[in-house]
Design a binder for these strands. Structure first.
Ligand SMILES: [Zn+2]
Ligand SMILES: [Zn+2]
Ligand SMILES: [Zn+2]
Ligand SMILES: [Zn+2]
Lengths: 132, 132
DNA sequence: TCATAATTGCAACTTTGTTGCAAAAGTATC
DNA sequence: GATACTTTTGCAACAAAGTTGCAATTATGA
């Protein structure tokens, strides 16, 4: 689907920044931080606009957020037929973050009376490129 | 074990701030943020000192860090016979974070050539007090 | 006690993200 | 396409969380 169609589908007006941002996320093979997005947007777009656009896309269900650690948050486009509730892999060498297949996660032993809404798993390790 | 003995065991000099900080963490039934620690240290101790002490304790293996989300990091004393690699529960109503029993986590489907070092799981939901 | 080494507090800085407001761009109607 | 109205963007200022350098204070060991 074209960036313009994705915007229309979610009832968002079509601006050049939004179109480019979707394109950047769609072409990425890994999750991107707001700074990485900023660097890929050639014209110098204001940080604030990027933050606001990311938040909008998140609220509208276009992208999902991955909190890697306290000062690293990345974003990835939600593709069709893909859930948002899958585990993620973080390479501690090259810092790349990728989505993993949506395997059924087993329940942990929870104390009585606790209720689960979502589960967030980040697997830390090294990717195949860094292991060569 | 007394706070003073814990310091000695890890080769750390015994200062009143470090002693109190260990005591606060030992008496807590949940993971604490640096701000929560600051509030429990009666005399107003400088933020910087708390950050430095937390980092020192973490490096020496006295405490473990739990990254709840992008702007909430909490810490918990590592007790004897307890691993540091267990899942955590975050109550989205009262914001409490607790350690969960160390259940054997199943491997997710990983792409070829990927190597795992640690796995970080945070279960979001509501605790038994908030469910009443 | 005294010298030495380690810890603490202060000020300044960095990074990541937010808010208010005016200027610019988009949308719909004619 | 021009017009009016709404939304988006950029700028400045701010906020929270954490870091660094340096001088003052406190701990340790002889
Ligand atoms: Zn890698
Ligand atoms: Zn993902
Ligand atoms: Zn609760
Ligand atoms: Zn824990």
């Amino acid at each position: 689907m074209k960036p313009e169609d994705i915007l229309a589908k979610h009832g968002l007006s079509r601006t050049s920044i939004r179109t480019k941002l979707i394109q950047i996320l769609a072409e990425a093979h890994e999750a991107l931080s707001s700074k990485e997005i900023e660097q890929q947007l050639d014209d110098n777009v204001d940080r604030v606009t990027i933050y606001r656009t990311i938040k909008l896309f998140e609220d509208k269900g276009l992208i999902h957020k991955i909190v890697v650690d306290e000062q690293s948050t990345k974003y990835r486009l939600i593709r069709e037929n893909k859930s948002t509730d899958h585990p993620h892999f973080h390479c501690i060498k090259c810092d790349k973050v990728v989505c993993l297949p949506d395997t059924p996660l087993p329940c942990c032993d929870l104390p009585q009376g606790f209720r689960v809404s979502t589960q967030n798993t980040i697997i830390e390790g090294t990717c195949q490129k860094c292991n060569k």
